[in-house]
Amino acid sequence: MLTERLIGGFVAAFGAVLLLVLIPMEVSDMRGPVNPALFPKAAAWLILLLGVVQILATARTSQDASPMELVRLVILAALVLGGILIMPVIGFLPTAVLMMAAVAAMMFERRLGWIAVTVIAVPAVTFTLFDIVLERPLPPMPY
């Protein structure tokens, strides 16, 4: 139950932030056939009100995640973020190999054959597919 109420509180707070901060800052409120702020404001009010209703929620529909799972999620997201940051520097292929190696390690894979598939074949095939077959340039390796 607590989870559901926390979700409601968080959503309602976001709605309030939208109405008080984000919309005045980022949306121009001007007269016109339809005010550009109409749809954002309507959505923000809906979010605020529905958040309040959610605080009163009676049924639990959320699922559980173990702390371990959440830690692993953070690591995974950090890995992808790292990939985004280093790709322009070291190029697509080395980034992909490093990312796949890290993810394969996270998956507890020990069989060398499958590791080779994930770490070498998958980046190679992806590169071939996008860069060579489809001629969509991916960040090159610096020479």
């Binding site: 992808v80 990939g83 697509f92 992909a96 990312m99 796949m100 993810v103 394969a104 998956m107 507890f108 894979e109 499958w114 598939v117 994930t118 998958v122 980046p123 992806t126 996008f130 489809l134 969509r136 991916l138």
Partner: peptide
């Protein structure tokens, strides 16, 4: 029928590259 340790990392890289392109 390949193991999870191949399917999901491979899907992740394809999604990464597809979004880039």
């Amino acid at each position: 029928s390949a193991p999870n340790s191949v399917i999901y990392p491979a899907s992740l890289l394809l999604c990464f590259t597809g979004s880039y392109v």
